[in-house]
Amino acid sequence: MIKWEVKKILKDKSSIISFILIVLLFLQISFVKPMLETKNEYWDEAKNKYVIDNRDKNTIANEKLNIKKDTIQSVIDSPNSDKSLISISKEKISLDNGNKYENVDFYKVFTERLDFSLSIVIMIIIIVMLVSNLYTDEVVSNVSPIILSSKEKNKALYSKLMIAILLPILVYGIYAGGTCLITYLQYGKPLNGNLQAYRIIDIAVLSKAMTINQYALSKIITNILMLLGISIVSLLISFFSDNSVKSISLSVGFIVIGKILTLFKFLPKTLILLLSIGNYIDVIIGMSKLTGIYNGTIEILSKSVDISNLCISVYGLIVVFSILGCIYSIKKALNK
């Protein structure tokens, strides 16, 4: 039945739009080029002109690294620093003293591209467009009564859930793989992934104590969880929608609801704090950083919990509960 669902998607007009978006996805990614550690370009307000640092690359890179290391050390030395941040800073320096710059060009670009805003938006459009219509189209075309009366109705409905789970993993997997290949062709093979992530994170003082490889992997996991949640919720919404416009609109509403709730100041401060850091919109457009960044802690049941980890855990819970919601909806449809 999964093959039948795939064939149905491929025959739909939205698959053509999706293909065009995938092509656009890879065309634009090669142009995403963050400032490398070996380069330094900035706008000089005093001189009113754009300045390009023409010094030796290693000199520039080591100067940047020293600034990062000094900033981290200042957190350790300051009596007013957050205790958790002091602990993280000490661990980073003990694991990687940052005495010498090492080539991290590949990882600097690759990790930036992994969650580039436009790329994530394009993937969300593809996923919502395809998943929102998995069941709604059958309702509109009056095919659903035929499916629900067939012997294969169980497989037919559960195959939709499998598509909603596999599609975001497949889309992001292809994107991440393609990004890795493009970055390799442009910047060479990945080197020094065992070094600390603060070497490639611009806000080094807030970076967590993790290797560059761990930082890249955590970005991939976070993005997949986010896309999975959006995909499965879109399927859940389609079970209760009677047309495609409503289904897609409600799916978009789910994506933006977290951002909207941050405007409701009467909500508990802790909830607003979590929403302001972990809402989909701010994470997608890069206004809020989750992966590898220390965003502080909150007290839950007398225990200190890292906010970034909590937000990512909520993404995981959204996936779990939306799957359970889909299973409930499927069983309800089967028992009609």
Rank of each mutant, 00 (worst) to 15 (best):
M1I: 14
K7T: 05
K7W: 03
L10T: 03
K13Q: 03
S15K: 00
S18P: 00
F31C: 07
F31R: 12
K33T: 05
E37R: 08
T38I: 05
T38R: 01
E41N: 15
Y50P: 01
N54K: 14
R55T: 02
E63N: 12
D70N: 15
S74V: 11
S74E: 15
D77F: 03
D82W: 03
D82N: 09
S94A: 15
S94K: 15
F106I: 13
K108G: 07
V109H: 06
F110S: 10
D115L: 09
D115Q: 11
F116T: 01
V121D: 04
I122S: 11
L130C: 04
Y135K: 09
E152D: 11
N154E: 03
N154V: 10
K155N: 13
A156R: 11
Y158H: 02
I163G: 10
I163Y: 08
G173A: 15
G173I: 08
G173Y: 07
T179F: 03
N194R: 13
I201Y: 05
A204I: 06
A209P: 01
I212G: 07
L217P: 00
L217C: 09
L225T: 06
L236K: 07
F240W: 12
S241D: 07
D242S: 12
I257L: 14
G258V: 06
F264P: 03
P268Q: 11
I277W: 08
I277Y: 05
L290R: 14
T291Q: 09
L301D: 07
S308R: 11
L310G: 05
I330H: 05
I330Y: 03
L334F: 02
N335A: 12
K336V: 02
